[in-house]
Write a protein that binds this DNA or RNA. Sequence first.
DNA 1: GTCTATATTTAGATAGAC
DNA 2: GTCTATCTAAATATAGAC
Lengths: 186, 186
Amino acid sequence: MDNRRLIIDSAKELFWHHGYSTTSPKQVMVDAGVGQGSFYHHFPAKADLGQEVVRENGRDLLASVRSAMEGLPTGRQRLAAFLGSAGDALGGCQIGGFAYDAGILAEPALRETLGTAFVELAGLLEQVVREGQDDGSVSPKLDPAKTAAALLAVVEGAFVVARATGRQSYADAATAGALALLEATS
Amino acid sequence: MDNRRLIIDSAKELFWHHGYSTTSPKQVMVDAGVGQGSFYHHFPAKADLGQEVVRENGRDLLASVRSAMEGLPTGRQRLAAFLGSAGDALGGCQIGGFAYDAGILAEPALRETLGTAFVELAGLLEQVVREGQDDGSVSPKLDPAKTAAALLAVVEGAFVVARATGRQSYADAATAGALALLEATS
DNA sequence: GTCTATATTTAGATAGAC
DNA sequence: GTCTATCTAAATATAGAC
């Protein structure tokens, strides 16, 4: 495999679990097993690597949510599958941590890419809420965009609370509570 | 006012809005208007200051939530007031960002203090859910702990999504969606 | 594309005078 | 308690040979 890909793959994991600002180029080089010359040849600045990582992690997350929903018969079941995204919350959300990273927020290009990932995810969820209303599994009284935003926030917040307390059980309680609210309305 | 307090007050704002790991002691000194000698006299290590900041920001957040709820007649109204905590989400949650900060998570004492703040907040919300069930404003079918965890996660997630997209409207949509779910069950 | 050597700036302090 | 001087390591690169 080429070094560029090795660097990106290492950085995706490191920036995800350890943060962008708090992970140095050197840590990425060591993890990827490439030298400094190679690293700076492919990525003249750290932000160039950050851009690729934010884009790919966003794309990967969207793909894994779609994959988790695939084949489920009702909209509500697909939303429940999305809530299951917080099933391993202690490692943090693939992109959620970037929202609190000063190094990401200070770079307009990175911030834009991050925002796009969240907007796409929110759009997907809104569509699934509508599908659930069409198939009768989600209450027609709910506003699709607001309900989608609430469910996305529950999952992102579940990651935050689980990491802050060190307890996965807080994430599980949050998503179970949200699912119960969704089910109680239908 | 004494320098120790000036340092803590500056650090509370800076760590809140800009992150703990991404704010240097020097930035704090300059903002507080104190010299290096004074800074390191009061806080031999940055983590000592971090400990005070996490504790105070957690305490302040709990106090402001209690204050926002004060005087409201029903549990559901008090929960709605809590959801309003994300009304100015672009600056980030006073403690939520610490959950993704490698420098906080690497220090057991800081992590413990952070976890305690979230556990106390969750406990308060659970109590208010129970009060709402007692006064008839919240459905008795809901599990208090799980519902509280879901509401806490919605607010924390609203901060994350608002900051990631740069749009307050995403936070507002999330909390409105959550409130609608809560109201639809009662 | 990759290597090693070098450079600049900052983080995070420590030492000792006042 | 505060000041200034000093220090070490790391972050983030750049330069030029191979």
